[in-house]
Design a protein around this nucleic acid. Structure first.
Lengths: 342, 342
DNA sequence: CTGAAAGCGCTTACAG
DNA sequence: CTGAAAGCGCTTACAG
């Protein structure tokens, strides 16, 4: 159907080699030939087959990306930056959305392999053994973004999740809170599960505040789970005065639960989130959050991957740690011991 | 680097034809040969090149999708359904995020062409002339999802936006409102701009309510623009008692503005949105919305495209109109003329 | 049931 | 500056 390089060559009265040369902008083609070829291309509406090119060039300009859930505001934002940065560099994205589905992830990884993608970005760290084995023998550059699995072989672009959680908790403590609830992530996740929890605990410890089991619960990062966890906390004997959730979505869930319970944020309870997604500005009160530099993270991830792909000396040999930043909005308030308010 | 079919053949002591046959699950291969080939494949960790296959099969199993903004809750949700449905059918997605960037869209369309994608999904209707021309001579199946551009040649999977907007407005009127603000979309968009506006106007007309210019404004579907438009309306001489925004994001922006202005939803002002995105449940009060069947829309879009690709007789010849549905939550309230409340 | 050979649509040494 | 030919890694008639 579609015209091929041969058709162009015939129409222009030159060899396919010559057509290929003008296609690839090589010098050493006489102007008149070049013009004839160009005209033939235009008239035919010819467009070279990326497939055929990839086969011979051994380069697809494709990046496979595995994202846990595109509907999450954090991931959709980072994905959009990744797409933009890739596009600027003439790379295209194949996206795989895995919703807690290891089989799908494995299948996609295999597809990426078959597709001969030039590189892979993974934003997920709950790798099972099969996946782990596969990526280790894959010999395609892989980079992890926003997560840091236990693997030593791969580079991650992340923030210091431990420090960020520590700082968020200290912020709450600094506000006078000592009954601080923690809505954590999945403890199978090193980065967003374990590290953030460790940061929280250390902050309490450093201030001689006891960590109370009832105040510590773990969700799945989504709004709904934040809501349910908050409900459990509110049903407890002693309710926390502040809550730190390790995702903005869960923080919003918590805020909603507090609201539905007839209480008010931040007057009755302070809430702080994590990520810095756009949701922070879409809710009322606006959500204070320990923010990841999402845009920068996307850009750095792609740049690092491209460096890895091209074997560039600029390619990172170890993790790239970006800066986190506390952004104070309206969901936290200082706590004073009596019922008087600050 | 990666092993090729030839390596497998050599290792198994058979021809590449035979390897190809077991790869493609053909019958007529003796069991012992099949076993030998399989072992060679496993030992080598061989995985066939999708690139090479695509070249000879003239089929890439790739779908190109153009989405206006993946960070919008509506689009990220439909995208995730599209991805899921495609994946089930062994198709992979190349996604292009165009933020009001016609050049990028054109460039991607050309890339899709070069990539020889099997089909294209477009969720955007502000097509300029160049794009229009390109898609018309593209001879790749194209389907529009959630939008219906003026083109006659292509099939759209949509709701009846006119009727949906009409029904939403009638709902507000039925609640006793007559001063109904309208936060519209881009009037260059036929579907979400013009049609929804027409539905709003007709509903007012049918109830002998005058459409007031000050109450009618147009945004860009995003939260921020809903906020700003609401601000303008609140600054007017006579403030509406209800507002209909043609996207949930804008409706949330409007709610936030109302909140920040010290007023309350729905007591002082009712707000209804459009789309049925997850944001409706993430805000307080929960947002009533004229919902599109997002999940169904994604599934139907992919199914229709695949039918188009395979030349199936089940392929839709004309637009597929899905049902809209009013979902009442907590952001609207009936209006009584005096200041007494219903 | 199995294999040699042509061909998918390009690019790239190699010669001239 | 230009072209004939080989080759990228597969599949698929065609023979046997």
């Amino acid at each position: 159907m579609a015209p091929k390089i041969k058709d162009v060559a015939k129409k222009a009265g030159v060899s396919v080699t010559t057509v290929s040369r003008v296609l690839n902008g090589e010098k050493y083609v006489k102007d008149d030939l070049k013009a004839r070829v160009q005209r033939a291309i235009d008239e035919l509406g010819y467009s070279p087959s990326h497939i055929a090119r990839s086969l011979v060039r051994k380069k697809t300009n494709l990046i496979g990306v595995i994202v846990p859930d595109v509907t999450s505001s954090f991931y959709s934002t980072i994905l959009s930056t990744i797409e933009k940065t890739a596009s600027i560099n003439e790379y295209n994205l194949m996206v795989c959305n895995i919703i807690e589905d290891n089989d799908k992830e494995l299948k996609y990884l295999q597809i990426f392999k078959q597709m001969r993608v030039d590189g892979i970005i993974i934003m997920h760290e709950k790798l099972n053994t099969e996946i782990r084995e596969l990526i280790h023998k894959l010999d395609i550059p892989i980079i992890f973004s926003s997560v840091k699995p236990v693997e030593q072989k791969f580079v991650s672009v992340i923030i210091d999740d431990y420090a960020a959680a520590y700082d968020a908790t200290r912020y709450l403590i600094g506000l006078g809170h000592s009954r601080i609830g923690f809505i954590g992530g999945d403890m199978r996740d090193v980065t967003s599960g374990q590290n953030r929890f460790a940061g929280y605990k250390q902050a309490l410890a450093d201030c001689a505040i006891e960590a109370i089991g009832d105040y510590i619960r773990f969700g799945d990062y989504k709004t709904q789970s934040g809501y349910e966890i908050m409900k459990e906390m509110l049903a407890g004997d002693v309710v926390p005065t502040a809550v730190f959730a390790v995702s903005d979505d869960m923080a919003v869930g918590a805020m909603n639960c507090i609201h539905d319970d007839g209480l008010r944020v931040p007057d009755d309870l302070s809430v702080i989130g994590f990520d810095g997604s756009q949701l922070t500005e879409q809710v009322r009160p606006r959500l204070s959050s320990m923010e990841q530099p999402i845009l920068e993270m996307g850009i750095v991830t792609v740049d690092a991957l491209l460096a890895l792909i091209s074997g560039n000396e600029g390619a990172p040999k170890k993790d790239v740690i970006l800066k986190h930043k506390l952004v104070i909005r309206d969901s936290c308030k200082s706590y004073v011991n009596s019922s008087t308010e600050a």
